[in-house]
Nucleic acid binder design. Structure first.
Lengths: 187, 187
DNA sequence: CTTTTTATTTGATTAAAATCAAATAAAAAC
DNA sequence: GTTTTTATTTGATTTTAATCAAATAAAAAG
């Protein structure tokens, strides 16, 4: 729980009482490789924190798998639309390696945000960071070439390329497998 | 102030005391056409609500103007990264028509979010909506053709096409002026 | 109302990456 | 270790939209 606490404190510190209530609401799970954390078309009830391991968040678009996110150590992840709007998610969440995670149920998170001002503030800051990241990513998709996006990934998450099949990396970068392969070869 | 209040209540209702404090912090401004609401490379101090009028939010990318957003009646808008991270904004905000707006200063908004739990909740819900919109837009840019994006705009904001030069619409849709013109002619 | 400026359309060419189709290479299963 | 399966690379072709270059059309200025 130590790393979760550290990650939370880094976003927004909590008072001792809210901190205790909040941490109590998180549940630890240890799952094997290829474990499904979220099935397609189900409401995403949990906000996750990946303590150790590797998870893939993807969906189907025209019968093809699109990797939306690759979560690694000390990252939060969730199905944003499903979690907040409480509708069925088109996302699928799957571990690529044995993983240790913490999760908190939507209802608990919202109840605690309601009961504790500082939990609400924490949530707001989490959503704000996510929004800023989303804007950076949109800019990257709209204006950078496939090559530039690959180089950006090499800079920001070099460990991913070693641990994840290229087909997942490709759709995460918004290119085909073939294009990514060509980018990698011309070096 | 009536429409601002209505828009706020629609997102998240406030208690009577916080509502009064919060509304008091918003300042009304009436500006002519071609008025600059935010200069390039300045810190964006204000969160805006467009009561009536039309504003364009754009920036320069490789010496070209890119329209990031076109704000119309009853919409909130801000430079997300600059407002929250307090750094200089690459965005420029400019009215395209005489406009009536409300604005609230960053420091007031944050102070009130700190003092009133329900203002913090309102802010969190605003940011969440913005995040969901950002994701929808990213999906649109990544997977829809220029044609589909134009049709989406026709569906969601038909009034914009009448009121805004095509060159602004084009970069807002992420295409060149020429491509947009061709899309429009083949109907 | 004529000139000047700005906005929009049309045409030809190019570029980036997708698609279709195999060919290797690597990993897993036997 | 050999076979089978899966992952990656390479090649040829096509598609979408950008770029470059004028030509109209519309709006603003005189």
């Amino acid at each position: 729980m130590e790393k979760l606490l550290k990650a939370l404190e880094h976003i927004s510190p909590l008072g001792s009482k809210s901190q205790q209530c909040f941490l109590d609401a998180w549940q630890y799970i240890s799952v094997p490789k290829d474990f499904t954390l979220l099935r397609e078309n189900t409401v995403s009830d949990y906000f996750f924190f990946l303590d150790k391991g590797l998870a893939r968040i993807y969906y189907y678009k025209n019968e093809k798998e699109i990797t939306e996110w690759l979560a690694t150590d000390q990252q939060f992840f969730l199905s944003i639309t499903s979690f907040f709007e409480r509708g069925p998610s088109h996302l699928i969440m799957h571990t690529l390696q044995p993983s240790q995670l913490y999760k908190i149920h939507h209802d608990d998170f919202m109840r605690l945000a309601d009961e504790h001002h500082d939990v609400e503030r924490l949530l707001r800051k989490m959503v704000t960071s996510s929004l800023i990241l989303s804007q950076v990513r949109m800019d990257s998709i709209q204006f950078e070439t496939a090559q530039q996006r690959y180089e950006r990934l090499l800079r920001t998450s070099p460990q991913l390329i070693q641990r994840v099949p290229l087909s997942y990396i490709a759709s995460f970068l918004g290119v085909t497998l073939e294009t990514l392969s060509r980018i990698r070869s011309q070096k």
